[in-house]
Computed example of a mutant assay.
Amino acid sequence: MNSKNYIGDAIKTESTNFQAMNERLNDDGLKRLLHAGIGLSTEAGEFLDALKKHIFYGKELDKVNLAEEMGDLFWYMAIVADELGFEFEEVMERNITKLKARYGEKFSEEKAERRDLETERKILEEQSFN
């Protein structure tokens, strides 16, 4: 396979429902979620870049920068929480309940590999957000 063939085959699987996309993007709430999603991805990349510089380039671990990136991540998460009507405390509590169901009181690789996704989903659905 050459690159021209690959590109031709790959774009056959591209969604071209741009009318539906444009209709969805008229929803200001969806725009906020998209903005937050892109921002979260960007800030997570900046967090990883700081770790890369420390691990692979031998630079000192820049904790100030890591804290800044965490703050930026929190900022974007606040947009998500506001748009979806979530409180951080509810999300944090639900996450810990799910993790306790998965691991009990302590992480293990075996439990990580043998996750009961059905039970975890039930836990997430049982606790309703206000």
Rank of each mutant, 00 (worst) to 15 (best):
A50P: 02
A50D: 07
H54W: 15
S15H: 09
Y57S: 14
L51E: 08
S41F: 07
I38K: 05
T42M: 10
K53C: 09
S15V: 09
A36L: 01
E46A: 07
K59D: 10
M70C: 15
R24D: 10
T16G: 06
A50M: 04
F74A: 03
K52L: 11
A67R: 14
D28E: 13
I55D: 09
A44N: 05
F56C: 10
E23G: 00
E69C: 02
H35Q: 05
K52E: 15
I55G: 04
Q19T: 02
R24Y: 00
E23N: 05
L51P: 06
L25T: 04
N65H: 13
L66S: 14
H54T: 14
M21R: 06
Y57A: 12
N22H: 12
T42L: 09
D28L: 14
L66N: 15
W75V: 09
G71Q: 02
D27V: 02
E69T: 06
F56R: 15
L61G: 08
L30K: 07
E46F: 11
A20S: 14
D72M: 02
K31N: 08
D28K: 15
N65R: 14
F18D: 07
D27T: 01
I38T: 04
G29K: 12
K59G: 00
A20Q: 13
L34E: 10
G37C: 09
A20W: 01
L33A: 06
D28V: 12
A67P: 13
L51V: 11
K59T: 04
M21V: 04
D72I: 00
N22K: 13
Y57D: 15
L51K: 06
G39A: 03
L40T: 04
R32A: 13
Y76W: 09
E69P: 09
A20P: 03
E68G: 08
F18A: 02
N26R: 09
D49S: 13
E68F: 10
M77Q: 13
L25W: 01
N22Y: 11
A44P: 10
I55K: 12
Y76P: 07
F74M: 08
H35G: 03
Y57I: 07
L33K: 11
Y57L: 13
T42S: 10
D72Y: 04
M77P: 08
D62S: 03
Y76S: 01
K52T: 14
M77Y: 15
K52D: 15
A67Q: 14
D72F: 05
L34Q: 08
F18S: 07
M70P: 08
K59L: 05
L48V: 14
T16V: 06
R24T: 04
F47Y: 15
L51M: 11
G71D: 05
M70G: 08
K53V: 01
S15P: 13
G71N: 07
S15D: 14
K53L: 11
G37H: 08
L33Q: 08
A44G: 11
G37Q: 12
L34D: 05
G39I: 00
I38L: 04
T42P: 09
H35D: 07
A50Y: 04
G29T: 03
E23L: 02
D28Q: 13
L40Y: 04
F56E: 15
Y57T: 11
